[in-house]
Every structure is written in structure tokens, then in C-alpha cells.
């Protein structure tokens, strides 16, 4: 009885806080997506599917698809870059490993807006980089480094890369590298040893890394806003515009629920695969 009372005292404050400020707002978001917009920029009375029907307007499917595409490409690039890094870190020992891990993490600890701003300043049309590339003849006078999809992808990779490196490193640290030697001794090429032994060996880390990059990438808003052009908008930009631009809150809610449903897909996939792996180890 006392134990139960203690459990309630320890659990209640945070759980109630999260129910009030996380669960209830999420439910409010779903409810508001079925409400009409009021002319004063608030939420009107009654029920309607208007905001959901508006998702069919040609603009939104294009942007939803672009959001998914850019996030998937970012995830693939991040995993491709993080794999060799995790491979190197996992094999290292002692002090150098700690130092290199810190070197990878430190940029990630700097302010997010400042990191994106740094890229914007670096790639700026009047900036040193573009001017020197022009004078070296590498790019033409009319090539912009900023305000295009390439810039958005690069800064997304820059931002989310540590989310891929850390779980892969954690998995590689536990990986038994002598298995690779065994595979080589049995005649496997280096490439085969990596794809057939190393990658399956760290598959849990790979799944976590995929989810940790893909999910926040789907919710990107700052990056396309600061380094992308008008043709690179993602769903997050539309949510911000509907919220603070023309103040159509039910429309913003609808887009957010759509984004939430999209992010649930990788969450469910990872949860399911993780569970399957736990019950049927390879």
C-alpha cells in the first residue's frame, strides 16, 4: 500500500504535466482540424471537412511529397556518411576514441539557428566562398549556392548527421570486429565482409539512426526557410505560414495531423522491426 502511494507521488507530477501539455494539445490539434476558421484568425464553431478537403488542392500533395523525398534523401546520405565513421570509431580504443567522438558531437551542441545561419552566411551570394569559386572559374556568374534544393539537402545532412553517427557508433562499439577477419579468412572480399557481416551486426543501431534522422527531418522548417528558395518549401513551412502568415489555424492543424501521420510510419516500422529482432535474434 505504501509502495503504491510512493509510486503515485513519484509518477503523478510529470505524467499529469505531460498529459496536460502534450496529450491534450495533440488531441486539440486533431479536433481543431475539423473546425472552420474564424474571420478573426481563431477557431470557429461547428464542424467541417473544409481544411481536410483543401489538402487535395494541387499545392499540398506536391509539398508533402517533397517533404518525404528530401527527408528520405537526407536519411540515406546521413547513414552513408555515418557508417564509415562508426566503423572507424568502433574499432578504435582509448583516449583517441573519446576525443574523436567529442569532435563529432561538439558542433551539434552549438545553437541550431546559428549553425543554419553560418551556412547562410558562408553560401551568401556576396560571400567569400561563391566569389572565390567564380574567380576560379568553377561556377558561373549566375550560379547561386543558396536558395536551392542542394543547399537545403546539404544543411539538412549537416544538422541531422550526429543523430545518425551516435547510434551507429554505439552499435559498432559492441560489434565484434574479429568476425570481419573471420569472414576475410573464409574468402569474403572486404566489401562483402562489411555488407554481410558488419551491417547486419549493427542493424539495431541502423534502425535507430534511420528513425532519429528521418523523423526530425520530416518536421524541418528552419532549414528550407533560411537556405531554400520558394520552390523548396516543406510541410513545416506551410504549417508556419498558415499559423502566423494568413492565420488559418484549422488548416495549420490539418497539415500538422498529416505530418504526424507521416512521422508515425517510421516510428511504427522501427518499433515493429525492433520487437521482431528481439523475439527472433538473427
Amino acid at each position: 500500500m505504501i509502495r503504491r502511494k510512493n509510486e503515485a507521488i513519484l509518477t503523478a507530477p510529470t505524467l499529469l504535466w505531460l498529459i496536460l501539455f502534450f496529450v491534450v494539445p495533440s488531441i486539440a490539434m486533431v479536433v481543431i482540424s475539423f473546425r472552420p476558421a474564424s474571420i478573426y484568425g481563431g477557431v470557429g464553431e461547428g464542424w467541417t471537412l473544409d481544411a481536410w478537403r483543401a489538402l487535395g488542392n494541387p499545392n499540398y500533395p506536391v509539398i508533402l511529397w517533397r517533404t518525404v523525398r528530401l527527408s528520405l534523401v537526407t536519411t540515406v546520405i546521413c547513414l552513408a556518411l555515418a557508417l564509415p565513421i562508426a566503423f572507424v570509431l568502433g574499432r578504435m580504443q582509448g583516449k583517441w576514441r573519446t576525443i574523436l567522438v567529442m569532435i563529432v558531437i561538439v558542433p551539434f551542441w552549438t545553437n541550431f539557428v546559428i549553425r543554419v545561419a553560418a551556412w547562410r552566411i558562408l553560401l551568401h551570394p556576396e560571400g567569400m566562398l561563391r566569389q572565390s569559386l567564380i574567380s576560379l572559374g568553377i561556377i558561373g556568374n549566375d550560379t547561386l549556392l543558396l536558395y536551392n534544393e542542394g543547399a537545403v539537402l546539404m544543411v539538412m545532412v549537416y544538422t541531422y548527421l550526429p543523430f545518425a553517427i551516435l547510434p551507429l557508433y554505439a552499435a559498432a562499439e559492441r560489434f565484434d570486429y574479429s568476425l570481419l577477419e573471420a569472414a576475410r579468412d573464409l574468402g569474403a572480399s572486404g566489401f562483402t565482409a562489411v555488407t554481410r557481416v558488419f551491417i547486419p551486426g549493427i542493424s539495431r543501431g541502423l534502425l535507430t539512426a534511420m528513425a532519429l534522422v528521418l523523423i526530425p527531418a520530416l518536421g524541418s522548417y528552419v532549414i528550407p526557410d533560411l537556405v531554400g528558395g520558394p520552390g523548396d518549401e516543406m510541410i513545416g513551412n506551410k504549417i508556419a505560414q498558415r499559423t502566423l502568415g494568413d492565420r488559418n489555424l484549422p488548416q495549420a492543424a490539418t497539415l500538422s495531423v498529416a505530418l504526424l501521420l507521416i512521422t508515425l510510419i517510421p516510428m511504427i516500422v522501427v518499433y515493429y522491426l525492433n520487437r521482431r529482432e528481439r523475439t527472433h535474434p538473427a
Partner: peptide, 27 residues
């Protein structure tokens, strides 16, 4: 249940947390 509740805010995109709180406060 508590465990799930603790981890969801870590995983969910921050944009969704921001907009849902805004809608909640406005409501």
C-alpha cells in the same frame, strides 16, 4: 505508460509540439 509518455516528446518533431501547444493555448 509513463515510459511511452516520457519518450514521445523526445521523438516527435519539435514543430508538431509547437503547433499543438499553440492551438491548445489559443483554444
Amino acid at each position: 505508460l509513463n515510459y511511452g509518455m516520457i519518450y514521445l516528446p523526445v521523438i516527435i518533431p519539435d514543430l508538431l509540439m509547437g503547433i499543438s501547444l499553440l492551438l491548445f493555448f489559443v483554444a
